[in-house]
Amino acid sequence: MSSRAPSIVTRLAAHALVYAVAASMLLPFLWMVSTALKTDLQALPREAAGESVTFLPPGWPWEWRWGNFADAARAVSLWDFYQNSLVAAALTTLVAGVHNALAGFALAKFRFRGQRAVFWLVMSTMMLPVQVSFIFAYIAAGRLGMVDNIQALVVPFAVSGFGIYSMKQAIATVPDSLLEAGRLDGMSDLELFWHVVRPIAWPTIAALGIFTFVASWNSFFWPLVVVDSVHSKTLPLAVAELSAGRYVQSWPVRMAAMTILTLPLIVVFVIFQRAFVRGVAMAAVKE
């Protein structure tokens, strides 16, 4: 940012500082994975294993016990939880992607009665804390037959105020002349949305999609309220119980389960990180 580069010492110190912070972000994950590969005895502090205390670094697994992952998958019906999380997150992303975009299109490119009211309804939902609404949202879900099933994890998030607002902002940049031209070609509004609006707004739709997926995948409070039985538990709920020692006692096996939970999301993030970061930044900068 400055045309005068600082001295080499300053530059080195700055790099060291930032890399140290970055390492602190990575270490818990590395530790999780390395512990997941250890035997129970290795994972214990050495003192407990009858040796003197050596605490740091967490230590390399001497013999890699890949079996922990199999144990984890066996002990905890991880695959079921996985499926629930994946289905819920994918469905939410898909349904919300379509509806947020359509609602954003309506608000950005149409003039109609009640527009202001709808806009303020959408805006207001962004600042309403879920802790006030969850009791009656839970009751509403129950009335609609959506307790303790996947629908309960999807339908309440089928749109979001934040999503609609972001889409409205993005679609507002689509030139009206393009829409008029499409109109003259005899396109219906839905065709206009698909052939004109969608391609132009795609970066926002994609960024929002990743955002929605991660939020759904990690969501905890609402599933905790609305899910009771094992068959519709999502991964975070299972992990919370797992960490409390509900399914397995062995720490390496628990860590293996945590690894199975987090690794796919880390991979997805690393692949899509540009879109993801841009999406998050875009939403904030527009504020």
Binding site: L26, F29, M32, F220, V239, R254, M255, L265
Partner: peptide, 14 residues
């Protein structure tokens, strides 16, 4: 950015 993306429930265990 990793801690923003990964479930705090899992990281909390660590």
């Amino acid at each position: 950015f990793l801690p923003t993306v990964v479930s705090i429930i899992a990281v909390g265990v660590v």
